[in-house]
Amino acid sequence: MTESRKHSGPASGFSRRAFLKGSGAVAAVTALHGQQAVAEQNQEDTTLVRGATTISLNVNGKSHQVKVEPRTTLLEVLRHQLDLTGAKPVSMDGSSGASTVWVAGKTVMASTTLALTCRDKEIRTVESLGGANPDAVPLAFVKHDAEQCGFCTPGFVVAVRAFLDKNPQATEEQIRQGLNGNICRCGTYANIIQAAIDLVKGGGNG
């Protein structure tokens, strides 16, 4: 996974018109002072961000100022800047589901989501299900011993919560189907599914 680094300079290859229109005064500043562009240019119908910039992200109900580059993923911000290490970097391309979080109510992979696309959106991580009054899903995972190494667990906890929120009366088959986007290499699927079934039957499905 790519660490956030300063990049070496502005990209080229765009038409002069688009470049001027997009970057305007900041490009001029860069040329004059030879500095790294720290740019966010807002035109009427476009925004252009080049280099590192500070944005505000709303995570688990709190607003945070974070410094991101265009290539910074939401997962990198959560783990490296906000110390929210629940979502895990397992696959580079989101195929494991271990970095599942909610952005604007949708379950997305933080590993394939650019942080800049999450401005003005409500982000919720697995940490929002913990604390002094944990959600029923992590409790059911504990009860059913639904983890081994634990790497996939936070992604699964979010997936189970999200799936049961949408399908509170799901059958075992529907649960298996619904959790297909998450992979567990230890093979604790049976226990995870038991935890989910228990939540449906026990009504701890708040």
Binding site: A11, T46, T47, L48, R50, E69, L114, T117
Partner: peptide, 8 residues
């Protein structure tokens, strides 16, 4: 590194 652009 790349530029991030958003169109509305």
């Amino acid at each position: 590194a790349f530029e991030y652009a958003e169109a509305r």
